[in-house]
Design a protein around this nucleic acid. Sequence first.
DNA 1: CATTCATAAGTAATCGATTACATATGAATG
DNA 2: CATTCATATGTAATCGATTACTTATGAATG
Lengths: 340, 340
Amino acid sequence: MKDSITIQDVAKRAGVSSTTVSRVLNNSGYISRNARNKVEKAMKELEYNPSRVARRLRVADGDRKLFGLLIADIQNPFYVDVVRGVEEMAFTRDYAVYPCNFAQDRNREKMYLDILQSEAIDGLIVTPYHEEDELVISLVREGFPIVCVDRNLGNVDVDVVVVDNEAGSYKAIKHLIQLGHQRIGFLGGLYSIPTSRHRKDGYLRALEEHDIPIDESLIEFGDSKYESGKQMVQKFLDMDEPPTALFTGNNVITLAGLEVIHSRGLIIPDDIAIVGFDDMYWSNSLNPPLTAVAQPGYEIGRQAARMLFERLNEPNKPPRKIVLKTELMIRKSCGSDVSK
Amino acid sequence: MKDSITIQDVAKRAGVSSTTVSRVLNNSGYISRNARNKVEKAMKELEYNPSRVARRLRVADGDRKLFGLLIADIQNPFYVDVVRGVEEMAFTRDYAVYPCNFAQDRNREKMYLDILQSEAIDGLIVTPYHEEDELVISLVREGFPIVCVDRNLGNVDVDVVVVDNEAGSYKAIKHLIQLGHQRIGFLGGLYSIPTSRHRKDGYLRALEEHDIPIDESLIEFGDSKYESGKQMVQKFLDMDEPPTALFTGNNVITLAGLEVIHSRGLIIPDDIAIVGFDDMYWSNSLNPPLTAVAQPGYEIGRQAARMLFERLNEPNKPPRKIVLKTELMIRKSCGSDVSK
DNA sequence: CATTCATAAGTAATCGATTACATATGAATG
DNA sequence: CATTCATATGTAATCGATTACTTATGAATG
């Protein structure tokens, strides 16, 4: 890294012009077998590593081989999976990924968006701050290549990869009902994120289908953070007639809920049952093992990157929506089926 | 991002040369109040966002305002804290951070190192693959600005931020001993990472100090991954005379251990006690709450970035080693003191 | 009043790649 | 044999910033 080898150094060593080296590098235009060999030899000998910076400065939009990835909360393991998936797919085509964590903070989001812009990315994969995220929306309107993951945008058509949130939470609630639960607390994330509302919809549908009356006092929304999760759980447990089961709307809320439940000495699932949205690779390490709605985070990331490639190829095709399936991982935190 | 505004656009709008705009941007050289005002006005009106790419191409080493961050395993929440800390400190001086996760994979590490080099970073913060990581070592030898975190390098002097691993594990083991445990299993990460060995040293010291004979069959090293953690725990639990307590050498091993323990229906801490190295923000969500050696991951990251700034300022000063303190977070997974 | 100097701002080269354009060669074509 | 064309390679401009260098101005100095 000291004095980096440049394309000129390679050209000189190989006895050709830098244009020829560039041709070898990009496999473009005509090159004789002989020239190619000389260049490849020189590159190897000098351990040449072309400057992505210089390349990005020159090359047009869409060929810069860099994606931006802007994630709401890297402390949530679900998003870590998404990041890994995006990178994996991007690398198959020699694209690099610049991952940014805005930690659910609007100013941070703006800051990273500026950084990514100034890094000349080809496209962006993002979990918008919320549905009306003006920053992301205006980029989409400008025609900048964007794929949203996990969260959709309102009032604007954009490529998006989500999961069947409604169906996922429906399955979870139905599972609880079948195990005999009637009073089920719903603990959502930010209301302004569509995902949160779809999860509520599944909750409502399951209750309605089983003729369980909706009790509005059993429905809460927070801000997807640990503290808010704790508060919601506390509120539920402090009720005169507390719910017998909790549906926690994401990873972080689930973890917060478990802390409160354990600290009160309550037994899962006897005193209180819990299903979480978002599985974790260590769900079995919880005691009892957590029943959870698994989202394919890694696959979400992969699909998002694939979609972004497609968008670059065809900038004008109509945006698509990919809906991946969730899976209810039944473990032990909801109790066993007594009705059987 | 469509047609980005360039410094020339700003210059034209302000009626000055691009040099003058650059001077305002960098607060360098002489600028009249009047010119500065015009330029600032134009920048605001055009929402000018200077190209980091163009800047990095031109500017010399050390002023490019970009750090590389190469992390061993982003799925380990400890490293997530490190990343957050690095970014936080870097941003105070307008440096951006390019985070890379090599997932404990050597080829990945090489790939990212190439990417980072070609991105013209000013310096690198890295958790080396292991002690003899030739790639990182050769960069250090070249004089490239590097700060190692969490893991040191062998045979080469380099800036490094670590914790008192020996003392941390000593405290943990001593705690177990005081609670009456004599047969304590040690489950380490990769033996080739100094950290793993230092944690073993603390383990040995605590045992020796309490005149407990060392039983080599109670000491295992794996590769810091979940599967290897499971295998080690299984091996211990399958012994004729299994240990009464486990010391797990990192987050991931701890989690793996818990899975095995719970799956066998063993009760913590009655059947088996456990202390983990690495605390997690949700250690209280485990049941029972996990007693763990907390590393200040966030602070490690901050200090590493600070050190890298210092290294850039004074390239030739002798490398330093910062050792941060661990803290034993006593919760419930080791049992309560019966000796009292 | 000539000289010096601090202030101010512009011109053009530069970073390391890609690419538009020019040029050269030899085989194939009519 | 003149023309065309596929192949092969080089020259120079370019991307958007910074910076070495030049030039200009007016106040201060001796």
